[in-house]
Design a protein around this nucleic acid. Structure first.
Lengths: 224, 224
DNA sequence: CGCCGAGTTGAGAACTCTCAAATACAGTGG
DNA sequence: CCACTGTATTTGAGAGTTCTCAACTCGGCG
């Protein structure tokens, strides 16, 4: 997990992101001044549950898993952040310890923005506050979506859903953006259950070869 | 669902609430000017999934269930709001249709705040924006808590948790604030499963008579 | 006294998990 | 390009949990 310089690609990623895209250049520079960048290997920990977290993290590339652990050592993912997404605002604004751990789910580059700085900006700059509000609404909806899926759908239905929502409308195939392992976590399934769901879907026109998913009959998936 | 006047008790409830407590009186009055109040019976619908929602709702008394429905007619609760809580900000800020329905879970009094007004305030008044940010963080955490519980705990553990977190630290008993039915929904369980969980807990020192819960051995519950 | 809604209990079905074994793959060093 | 090693993924079998449906209890009410 060593320190890097912010490349111009990184800057571009930040500026394209949901959060920064709507902010003026000057605010953006202002935030960046107190930011640091680091390279993480898979399994590197950004912060741990119950720790104090003073920074806000931003995924420049790679993937970060947010997971909670139960007392018996089991753990459950509650969110997955990929390139261009921001995490860990909640702890800061609620002045609480982290309620989950953040772990790189693959080789990643992470920007660490100064929390105090951001908090100050949120309190004084309308645009920042606005962007934050939207970001939080978005995040809330994501989590709610996951909860509703867990409660309403079977494993196979959740997987069908995922495929439908990740395959471009004008295409019949796409590549999984991460290991099946990780997907299982995101969907709240044991890896074996994911595997079985895929093989059920095979029988209704889904081909899975490695990370390549092909859909032969979109309509069959929607029926699930 | 007929229109009421805002009583002084209602005003007090609003001012005590997480959201309004930190705002100055004048802002508070400003919001109230464009608010209306209505009395709801159990099962009255505040808004339905996929509808446009332009207002923000506030529970003055009673209980509101936020639920999503699956295509097969099943439905899952994703949140439960009681006295002093606010709902439906997300749709407004994301400019989306509602992703869930809101239904009174018992006789309730609901304030309906003008969404445009609130949105305007959020964009111009730092205090309002700040309050909103905290509110959203809080809500996000609640949802995340639910998701994590669903994924990490068994039915019995979730119920034990609920009991522990609702029984005052200095007491050995408390009353459920709503029907078991509703509790089952909140915990993501079928009513039968909740019932069975209670009877499992009975064997480790929990007495349930109607809505009265007594804990004889707090420690036994924590062990679950 | 019979009805009704809430809650409980029983039984079997449906899902998902866990553990173990078999494969498939990817990266490494020849 | 190949063998080798460690990590993913798949599959099988059995166990565990929760759901569904149906019957039954309980307390309140007309």
């Amino acid at each position: 997990m060593n320190t890097l310089q912010l490349t111009s690609t990184d800057r571009a990623t930040l500026m394209r992101s949901r959060f920064f895209a709507r902010l003026p250049q000057s605010t953006f520079e202002d935030v960046l001044n107190s930011a640091s960048v680091s390279a993480c290997e898979e399994r590197d920990v950004l912060f741990r549950q119950d720790e104090d977290v003073d920074d806000v993290f931003f995924v420049l590339s790679g993937l970060v898993r947010l997971c909670r652990m139960g007392k018996d050592g089991r753990e459950a993912d509650v969110a997955l952040f990929s390139e261009g997404e921001m995490l860990a605002e909640t702890a800061m604004f609620l002045r609480q310890r982290a309620t989950a751990s953040a772990v790189a789910a693959k080789k990643s580059v992470i920007a660490r923005l100064n929390g105090g700085k951001l908090q100050h900006l949120a309190a004084t700059d309308h645009e920042v506050a606005q962007a934050l509000i939207e970001h939080l609404c978005y995040r809330g909806k994501m989590t709610e979506d996951l909860l509703a899926e867990d409660r309403l759908l079977t494993a196979t239905q959740r997987v069908a859903n995922f495929i439908l929502s990740h395959c471009p409308k004008d295409s019949t195939s796409f590549r999984l953006p991460f290991q099946k392992n990780i997907l299982a976590g995101k969907l709240g399934l044991a890896p074996e259950a994911l595997s079985r769901a895929f093989s059920t879907l095979r029988q209704s026109g889904v081909t899975v070869r490695g990370r390549l998913i092909e859909i032969h009959d979109r309509h069959a998936l929607e029926r699930f």
